[in-house]
């Protein structure tokens, strides 16, 4: 996996494990090639992944938008 994230300054108190997961989620959920899919991504457990790192709300928003777009078809 990509090298462990480095936090400095006012973010340096966050746990390494939280930061690593946050960075992976931020990339794989929020970016990349988007292709019209055939499945539903469940959000039931997403918030569990975000414990300790409240800045992940942006990625939750992304998932909700994808689900809303698919539901409206």
């Amino acid at each position: 996996m990509s090298a462990k994230p480095i936090a400095d300054g006012i973010l340096s108190d966050l746990q390494d494990e939280d930061l690593t997961l946050f960075e992976i989620l931020d990339h794989v959920l929020g970016k990349g090639i988007v292709i019209a899919g055939e499945i539903t991504i469940s959000v039931a457990n997403v918030e569990l992944l975000y414990l300790g790192v409240n800045v992940l709300a942006g990625s939750v928003d992304t998932i909700n938008k994808v689900i809303a777009a698919r539901s409206s078809k």
């Binding site: 480095i6 400095d8 300054g9 960075e23 990339h27 794989v28």
Partner: peptide, 23 residues
């Protein structure tokens, strides 16, 4: 020193995709 930083990588180029964002 007044700011917080979080550095990571190297990553695959997730943020440099130009294809349209479809549902």
């Amino acid at each position: 020193t007044d700011c917080g930083f979080l550095r990571s990588g190297p990553w695959p180029p997730y943020s440099f995709i130009s294809t349209p964002r479809v549902g």
